[in-house]
């Protein structure tokens, strides 16, 4: 997936002189996860810019640069550190188009990795995307495959409004085909990963893969679960979820983030309304428990949602 991200950044830099990259150790060092490897050599230190450890200024500068004719792509090393950039993101980037009466948008991208599985502990593993989905003016996407990581990042950079691209750390090493001439993926469009008629599992990021594993487990029991990858969280593809639900009549929403007050809660609430007549069982959520992400392998394994828990939720909604 890292190579797909690298390719998207390289192509955007090559196509549009207004695109610049900003972040800690993204230049000569190639980025903490290697996503920007080789880009500074190719596009120069002006456009691929190493910053000091100043998340508030990185994000604020991205806002000012975006209002002054550039298309900055900022990287924040771990999503946990977005706390330090929240003012620029929430009070400035998200507000400018609206509060300045539509004079101009803020075409910036924030790339930031979330997720556990690496024993990175409570301050380097969080999935905080629901915070950002809650802010009018921001868009949020979260790819589950290299092809989607490429295409969604291209769409994010081309977008006239601020887009947060949440990348799952555990998926950086994932291998997968990116076509030579990939189809653009519009922000806000979900994808059916695996069709099925008995229940719909909506997921994003790493949870998409747990959901497909769950679908395989269930298939062995004669249950055909459909897996829908949201890809975009804000805006999210309500029509696609409703369409699937109206075929399967059962809905489970799965994500790595804490279950309470999460993206799944929003989807469940909307479908309990718009999909009320279609539902033949309770809408169930599968997410992390309401604690910080623990460090020790055994603890983190117990903490993270997985295929077994998703499969159990599907069985329960079919009960």
């Amino acid at each position: 997936m890292v190579q797909a991200i690298n390719r998207a950044l390289a192509e955007a830099l090559a196509e549009d002189p207004a695109v610049i990259l900003l972040g800690e150790d993204i230049g000569a060092a190639g980025g903490p996860f290697g996503a920007t490897r080789g880009l500074q050599q190719r596009f120069g230190p002006d456009r691929v810019r190493d910053t000091p450890i100043s998340e508030a200024a990185i994000m604020g500068a991205a806002v000012g640069a975006a209002l002054t004719g550039l298309r900055p792509v900022a990287e924040i090393m771990f999503m946990d550190f977005v706390t330090l950039a929240m003012d620029a993101l929430v009070n400035q980037a998200a507000k400018a188009r609206f509060m300045f009466g539509g004079q101009r948008g803020v075409p910036l991208v924030l790339r930031t990795p979330h997720g556990g599985g690496l024993s990175a502990g409570p301050q380097h593993s969080q999935c905080l995307e629901a915070w950002l989905c809650h802010v009018p003016g921001l868009k949020v996407v979260c790819p589950a495959t290299p092809a989607d990581a490429y295409a969604l990042l291209r769409s994010a950079i081309a977008d006239p409004d601020p887009v947060v691209v949440v990348e799952n750390k555990a998926l950086y090493a994932m291998k997968g085909e990116v076509p030579d001439a990939p189809e653009p993926i519009p922000i806000g469009r979900a994808r059916i990963v695996r069709p099925g008629r008995d229940a719909t599992i909506v997921a994003y990021g790493a949870a998409v893969h747990w959901a497909t594993d769950a679908a395989s487990l269930l298939a062995a029991e004669g249950i055909e679960a459909e897996v829908l990858d949201l890809r975009s969280l804000q805006p999210w593809d309500e029509a696609a979820v409703l369409e699937s639900l109206s075929r399967t009549h059962r809905l489970v929403v799965a994500h790595e983030a804490v279950e309470a007050f999460g993206v799944g809660a929003e989807i469940a609430a909307r479908m309990a309304d718009a999909g009320f007549d279609e539902l033949d069982g309770p809408i169930l959520r599968v997410g992390a428990p309401f604690t910080p992400v623990p460090f020790a392998r055994e603890l983190e394994a117990a903490y993270r949602p997985d295929a077994a828990r998703i499969a159990a939720a599907v069985r329960r909604t079919l009960d």
Partner: peptide, 30 residues
């Protein structure tokens, strides 16, 4: 705010204008 005049806005957040102007300075440079 009047972006066509380079007026990037008054700001309700104390201190928030500095990083925004920093980014504008960067854009002018680049």
């Amino acid at each position: 705010a009047d972006l066509n005049r380079g007026m990037l806005g008054a700001n309700g957040i104390v201190g928030a204008g500095a990083p925004i102007a920093l980014g504008a300075a960067l854009a002018h440079r680049i």
